[in-house]
Design a protein around this nucleic acid. Structure first.
Lengths: 162, 162
DNA sequence: TATGAAAAGGGGTTGCT
DNA sequence: AGCAACCCCTTTTCATA
């Protein structure tokens, strides 16, 4: 049932999720101390949260600019006619482009919002001219380069829930 | 020096980064096997990559919808006059809103792009009316609800670099 | 079905070469 | 960088509620 947790989350679960989405390298012992439960209990709860898919995965977040990926662009894309195969064809192409790290379907004026990461402006233009704009059914795009990050986190606002 | 790695990355480092940004729960032994290096060497390289800030942090990615955060909105925001204190004031407010998980400065028509996550449409409207639109100097906003995710990853396209 | 205590096993961490 | 020892944390077992 989407929109509802598969099982109720108590305060120990909430502490686990809050801590792990901030720092996935915490030991179960450290989490247990802060959550007020035993180490083995916390370990089992984490397993359940992973099995339920509430914890999707653990990842390392890398520094884009330190690696030389200096260009980030948000591109709105609108497609032409919405035939039966237009959307799947576009979406398959998108999934194959490594430059596109996110693609969201939007309600509103444009059909898609893409987050595109490349090395620099030149490589973005190459991507745009040779790949993105070549995908059939793209009507128009509106690309905006991201200049600075005021805020950026992968942490969900769990405080809104509890 | 932004845009350049603090030190050159060889193929072992590249393998480490590629694997860890996909799955941060991999053991150093597993990474070592795939990278063709010893376990302790891989461990020390990871420490160096963390010290250099190339690996920023390790986090757990949670399932937004399973937790009941069903609403995600991308909001373009344009400010009024750009006085000396207009931007910092807006940015400070943004950083305090838990609903705003990302805020990027954009080159182009609008000033900012926000990614906002809330429980549902009602809670988004409350956030928008009582918080976002109340921030002084907001001239206009353009909010688009995200309907579905075609692609979404925190993995940087390292293949573009090497 | 979930818990805490404790044993067993594997991997992170360190010193040495 | 690699090897090996050590220590800590993950994982399992067991007893209890």
């Amino acid at each position: 049932m989407p929109g509802t947790a598969a099982y109720p989350l108590d305060s120990v679960d909430r502490t686990i999720l809050t801590l792990l989405q901030a720092d996935a390298s915490l030991s179960t012992a450290e989490i247990a101390a802060r959550a007020g439960a035993s180490q083995s209990s916390v370990w089992r709860r984490i397993e359940k949260l992973e099995a339920a898919g509430i914890i999707q995965r653990r990842v390392a977040i890398l520094d884009r600019k330190k690696l030389g990926l200096n260009m980030m662009v948000f591109a709105h894309v609108k497609l032409q006619a919405h035939g039966q195969r237009t959307l799947p064809a576009f979406e398959d192409a998108i999934r194959r482009f490594p430059e596109v790290v996110e693609c969201h379907t939007l309600l509103g004026e444009t059909d898609y919002l893409l987050r595109v990461i490349t090395r620099d402006t030149e490589s973005y233009e190459t991507f745009f001219r040779k790949h993105l704009s070549q995908v059939a059914s793209v009507q128009f795009t509106n690309s905006s380069m991201a200049i600075s990050e005021v805020k950026s986190t992968t942490e969900l606002p769990l405080s809104l829930l509890w």
